[in-house]
Design a protein around this nucleic acid. Structure first.
Length: 182
DNA sequence: TTCTGGATTGTCT
DNA sequence: GACAATCCAGAAC
């Protein structure tokens, strides 16, 4: 499948499923996408549900751009913007490139939890609020399409109180590096 | 202006 | 399994 900017001109649910197996790099550091979650503007737990604000502006900006926000006052979380008000949260990567750099940023932690969680992967890749609104098709970001089809798991999303019945979480089947089991 | 709670994680029991 | 850490967006006043 082609991975150009039109890849993101679709509902976040489709994009989230098709991103599994693709490769995400930030400054040359990163790896294969293992786990995603879809959010949209009709979604009561989505940041875009109550309309555009200064914080979520990137979600209403051009598709194929990053939406980065701070979670629990501590962590950064990376989203890919799709249709207006919808985005895909990147929850886990397989550390492939720049592993030593990621280990240093994460404090020499075990590979198992290097990029397994939205806050952890942002720390490992060095992504912060400064990267909010940047294009995914220009440095420091780099996206590569998956080479082959991958079996994808589907399940309810994590860490939310509403909308848990929607199966909008996607993961690579068989991976032991998911943030939580499906 | 003040208050509340969260798309999380690390540590301790 | 329980809970603290820590900050800010959005709501309420």
């Amino acid at each position: 499948m082609e991975l150009d900017v039109s890849f993101f001109d679709r509902p976040s649910r489709e994009v989230a499923a098709d991103l599994i197996g693709a490769t995400l790099l930030f400054c040359g550091v990163g790896g294969m996408v293992l786990e995603t979650e879809a959010y949209h503007d009709q979604d009561p737990v989505s940041h875009s549900y109550r309309g555009r604000t200064p914080r979520n502006g990137a979600m209403f900006g051009p598709f194929g751009h990053a939406y980065v926000y701070r979670s629990y006052g501590i962590h950064w979380c990376l989203n890919f913007v799709c249709l207006p008000g919808s985005a895909v949260l990147i929850r886990a990567l397989q550390p492939d490139l720049g592993i030593e750099e990621m280990r240093q940023r994460r404090g020499l932690t075990a590979p198992r939890i290097l990029c397994s969680g939205p806050g952890r992967l942002c720390q490992a890749l060095g992504i912060s609020g400064e990267d909010d609104g940047k294009s995914l098709f220009a440095p420091p970001f780099e996206l590569r399409p998956r080479r082959q089809g991958h079996p994808v798991l589907v399940g309810p999303r994590i860490g939310i109180t509403k909308g848990v019945d929607d199966p909008l979480r996607f993961g690579l089947q068989g991976s032991r590096l998911l943030s939580k089991r499906f």
